[in-house]
Every structure is written in C-alpha cells, then in structure tokens.
Computed example of a mutant assay.
Amino acid sequence: MKTYKFYLMIAVMMMATVAAKAQTSETSFGLKAGLNYASLPSNLSAITDKKGKIGYNLGAFARIGTSLYFQPELNYVTFKSSYNYAAQTYTPKFHQLNLPLMVGYKLINTDALNFRISAGPDLNYTLNKAVGPAGFDYKKLNVGGVINAGVDIGNLTLDARYSRGFTKINKQLQEKTNLFNLSVGLKVF
C-alpha cells in the first residue's frame, strides 16, 4: 500500500507543477479511441497455454506545454486473456479505468506535424470482478508504467503505447499485465 501512496504523491506533485506552468503554456484537449492487445504473463509453471486477446479503449486527454509537455489521460479500457490452470481454461475479462500521467517531448514540433515520445506512471482500477480459479482474486488497483510514441497531423493524433504492470494483478498466479495499445485521437480544443 505504501507504493500506491508514493506513486499518488508523485502524480499529484507533477500535476501541481504543470498546472502552475499552464498559465504560460499551450494547452489542448482531445478524445481518443483504439485497440489493445493484452497478456497476463506469469512465472508460475502450473499456468500453460497463455494467450492474449484484443480489447478496446475510449478516453480523453489533455496536453499541457509546448516542446516539453505533461499529458494526463482518463481512459476506459477492456481486455481479456486466456490460460490453463489445474486442467481448466480461464478467460478473465477486465473493464478498467486507466490514468496514465505522462511527461513527453516533441522531437519535431511544427504547426502541421509533431513527433512525440512520452513516459510516466500508469494507474489502473478494475471496475468488474474478473473470473479466475477459485480463491485466486484479481486486485482492483494496480500500478504500472507506460511508454508512448505518437504523431500529430493537424488535430489528428496517432499513438502507439506499451504499458507494463509493476504490481501483480493476481498475487497467487503471479500475473502482471502487459498491454499494447494503438489509438487515434482528435484534439477538440
């Protein structure tokens, strides 16, 4: 629990710093949608035939700053995975609220075209109860990290992202999350 408090404190400090600079910086807001590919890798040898599945995401983002920027997002994310454990197949499905808090840099920064990279902490809260083996519960709150590469063409944004869970989403099964995401967005103002 101390780890969550530490990440939350860092996120609040980052947002406060960026908010103070926002008065002199460029700020834009947008909507996004995309596809995910998720897997739940595990070190447990009793888990076999692991397969990732396709999901989707919908969300909103803010970008605060010019060349160096802060980009918080709030996304609704769905994904599922499949694996065998104790001679049974399980396909847990997840519906999550996702809060990445990224700091980025625009490698190319023009009015018509931007190439961006960013990284930061990634907080996930599971809204549903994912079904797994009896007695093996999936955690509601998970902390991870995200790296992102993107391009802006006018108001259109395209992003490719990798998110990795730092905490075990299922302690008994020793699972963490891997999530690959491709999304398209539109800056609305």
Rank of each mutant, 00 (worst) to 15 (best):
M1S: 15
T3Y: 09
Y4E: 09
K5N: 12
F6A: 13
F6V: 12
Y7H: 02
I10T: 11
A11K: 01
M14P: 00
A20Y: 09
A22N: 09
Q23V: 13
Q23E: 14
E26P: 05
G30W: 00
L31R: 00
A33G: 15
A33W: 00
A33M: 12
L35S: 03
N36D: 11
N36Y: 01
S45L: 05
T48Y: 00
T48I: 00
D49V: 02
D49K: 12
K50L: 06
K53A: 10
I54M: 11
G55V: 01
G55E: 02
Y56R: 00
N57C: 05
G59R: 02
G59E: 04
G59I: 03
R63V: 12
R63L: 10
G65L: 09
T66M: 04
S67F: 03
Q71W: 01
P72E: 07
E73N: 10
N75L: 14
Y76D: 06
F79C: 04
Y83I: 00
A86W: 02
A86R: 08
Q88Y: 07
T89F: 04
T89L: 04
Y90D: 05
T91G: 08
T91D: 13
P92K: 05
K93A: 11
L99M: 13
P100A: 09
L101I: 14
L101S: 10
M102T: 15
V103K: 03
I108D: 10
T110R: 09
D111I: 00
A112W: 11
F115A: 13
R116F: 01
S118M: 11
G120C: 08
L123G: 09
Y125D: 04
T126M: 06
T126G: 04
K129G: 07
F136L: 05
K139A: 13
N142Q: 12
N142I: 08
V143M: 10
I147W: 08
I147G: 15
N148W: 00
D152N: 15
G154I: 02
N155T: 08
N155S: 10
L156E: 01
G165A: 07
T167R: 06
Q172H: 06
K176A: 10
L182T: 07
L182A: 13
L182F: 15
G185I: 06
G185D: 07
F189M: 12
F189G: 13
F189P: 05
